[in-house]
Design a protein around this nucleic acid. Structure first.
Lengths: 132, 132
DNA sequence: TGAACATATGATTATCTGTTCATATGTTTA
DNA sequence: TAAACATATGAACAGATAATCATATGTTCA
């Protein structure tokens, strides 16, 4: 039963296994294909959002929304230990979403991207609509 | 060395372990604390972005940018098998980022959120700036 | 109705990721 | 300079997740 389909498939297709025969809406597919951004760019976009896709990091971005804070401040606000915060700040910094400045023993972090606030707002709008 | 700090800490603090003594910028922290959104909302925001934080899902959203497509179309465009696409479409649908309609044997997917395009654009802008 | 097809889904597995622990680095101050 | 402190970081472990495989569901058409 399954065997037969597989054989038919193997004869007809050399591309990715999607459907057994061509159910593909060829014209539309070709059109879309020609307008696709580079793979690298799409990866970059996913990576950007991956950074926003964590509870702790979202909270950090939020507490930095109004003012710069030192690592210790953030740790206390989120009720988490210093190391965890420090690791996440590193991720955010690598993604260029936050920047830091040293002041004596403390290091103060603040938002470092004009899009951060906009992206957060969009996410919030979507999240709020979900709750209905 | 470490022991001493720990003792001092234990005497002075009952909250989260962040710093050994109070290095906290109290006024700022209190101010931020009073303006924090609910934990639930912040979780929801992270969850929303988590959906955008995957290469395959970003690609799916992109190919759906201009026109609706059936599962088979998407699978061929991304050069992936049908099952993988189907699983990801499910995630996107649960997040209410895509919707589907049946037409005979095929099921056509399309974008289902006014924010999707905006969020993608923001992500793209940020990703493009990173490459510099 | 049964064969063929398009899609969905549960289970499994390999990989990725966030937190913790221990410790290192770099700064201040007595 | 040495102690105290604020932060950073490497290693390890636990939990999350995406792709795959096998199979189920639901539709069409002869």
């Amino acid at each position: 039963m399954k065997e037969i389909n597989q054989e038919v498939f193997d004869e007809n297709r050399t591309e990715a296994e999607c459907c057994e025969t061509f159910c593909v809406h060829e014209e539309t597919v070709d059109k879309v294909k020609s307008h696709m951004p580079d793979d690298e760019l799409l990866d970059g976009i996913a990576d950007t959002f991956k950074v926003f896709g964590d509870k702790t990091r979202i909270k950090i971005l939020y507490v930095l929304h109004s003012s710069e804070l030192c690592v210790c401040d953030i740790a206390q606000l989120l009720d988490m230990n210093q190391s965890a915060i420090s690791h996440q700040l590193r991720v955010l910094k690598q993604a260029k979403l936050v920047k830091s400045r040293r002041d004596g023993k403390s290091i103060f972090y603040s938002l470092d991207d004009s899009h951060v606030r906009t992206i957060l707002s969009m996410g919030m709008e979507h999240a709020m609509e979900q709750e209905v």
